[in-house]
Design a protein around this nucleic acid. Structure first.
Length: 243
DNA sequence: GTGAATGTTAACAG
DNA sequence: CCTGTTAACATTCA
């Protein structure tokens, strides 16, 4: 379920619970559930793939990883990692990591790294790329400290749109091209958001999980690339290799 | 039934 | 101590 746009959708879906009092919390997460009871949710925030449930003096951070999911109103059959109960409503989270943060969020998160956030600062991302010259672009796009919220789908579709081979070395990619990649990360994320809302995301995949590109009929290669060994999907020689 | 997957971290080996 | 590999996660879907 992850990647930044899905978390933005979750935030919207639960926004009506803002300012409500949590009647009680349950689940097998290693957390003091009693400390959440009778507390008011002050806000829901997100930083990339992190979903943040804010209370006045602490925050509950949820990360869905690869298998995580959530459910509003009605529970699934499996036990929730954490569930928030309201007077006449419930919110369930499954197979995710749940942690309590004590520090103010501004001390923890670099909001300028959140690709979909209001404070996203592309120039800063570009600057961070300066120290990763010897790394493959596919690996670096997944670095949450630079591109918070970007996941494997966004990575592959952005590189396809920018015509850059995933194994290209950051230091060898022309500056203007790098700038275009950074820009496209946010741009594609909002396309992702729009399509996901309409339940038509997969219909728009150009390379991700494709064998052939639907429009051009060109063959899509799949390869576990870089140090991260995550799958990259790309079309040669349309996507240029800079090395 | 099998395998792979929108992710991250901890444990371990070298 | 640094780096790379592996497993694990109350899963889900092709």
């Amino acid at each position: 379920m992850p990647e930044g746009p899905s978390i933005v959708i979750l935030k919207e879906k639960v926004s009506y619970l803002k300012h409500k009092i949590v009647a009680g919390a349950s689940g097998y997460a290693d957390l003091d559930m009693g400390a959440i009871a009778h507390r008011k949710i002050t806000d829901f925030k997100s930083w990339g793939k992190h979903f943040l449930i804010c209370f006045s003096d602490f925050t509950v951070k949820i990360h869905f990883g690869l298998f995580g999911s959530y459910q509003l109103h009605e529970p699934k059959k499996v036990n929730p990692k954490i569930a928030l109960h309201f007077n006449d409503d419930d919110l369930y989270f499954y197979v995710c990591s749940v942690k309590r943060l004590e520090q103010p969020l501004d001390e923890i998160y670099d909001w300028e790294a959140d690709v979909m956030g209001d404070h996203w600062k592309p120039a800063k991302a570009l600057e961070k790329l300066g120290s990763r010259g010897d790394r493959q672009i596919a690996d670096v796009l997944l670095d949450q400290n630079i591109f918070s919220g970007v996941g494997n789908i966004i990575k592959n579709e952005v590189l396809y749109r920018c015509k850059v081979h995933p194994e290209s070395l950051v230091g060898k990619i022309p500056k203007a091209k790098l700038k275009a990649i950074v820009k496209e990360c946010r741009n594609y994320s909002f396309d992702f958001l729009k399509w996901k809302r309409n339940n038509e995301l997969a219909r728009h995949f150009e390379v991700y999980e494709q064998k052939k590109n639907k429009g051009s009929g060109k063959e899509v290669h799949r390869k576990a690339t870089g140090k991260l060994k995550r799958n990259s999907y790309f079309i040669e020689p349309v996507q240029k290799l800079y090395n």
